[in-house]
């Protein structure tokens, strides 16, 4: 059974971080980028399981980099976004944008929809 090709919210954040950082991105820098820009705490385990899922989906490629002393002699794994990943990211952002378009002021509208939702079930 193949995995769904749609992107989850955290996958979008990770791909966006990869676009920003280019081909030198690795675990530490991606994590920091998301924490600083999205103001959200990210665990290294969540990041690596997402990166590996994106790699399985064919959106991301990786290569083993150099080992350094401050890493205890362990190698880095650099990640880069592939053309398919970039296309899927753009598609997801467009979809999100068109869903949010016209929701002005959106917090009030969303609140109204949330209270109305149970009546439709």
């Amino acid at each position: 059974m193949g995995r769904t090709k749609n992107l989850g919210e955290f996958e979008i954040l990770v791909l966006a971080a990869l676009v920003r950082q280019g081909s030198d991105a690795y675990g530490v820098t991606i994590r920091k980028e998301i924490e600083e820009r999205a103001a959200r705490s990210v665990s290294i385990g969540a990041l690596y399981s997402t990166l590996s899922r994106l790699e399985e989906k064919g959106y991301v490629t990786s290569r083993v980099g150099e080992a350094t002393r401050e890493r205890g002699g362990r190698a880095k794994r650099h990640y880069a976004i592939k053309a398919e990943g970039q296309a899927q990211l753009e598609k997801s952002i467009r979809a999100l944008g068109s869903m949010l378009k016209g929701l002005d002021p959106w917090p009030k509208t969303l609140r109204m929809r949330a209270t109305r939702a149970p009546a439709h079930r």
Partner: peptide, 16 residues
Amino acid sequence: ADKAVLIGDLEEEYRL
């Protein structure tokens, strides 16, 4: 598969 890479990332940030 990713054991060394992940521990390396953690150690790098830990040292900082």
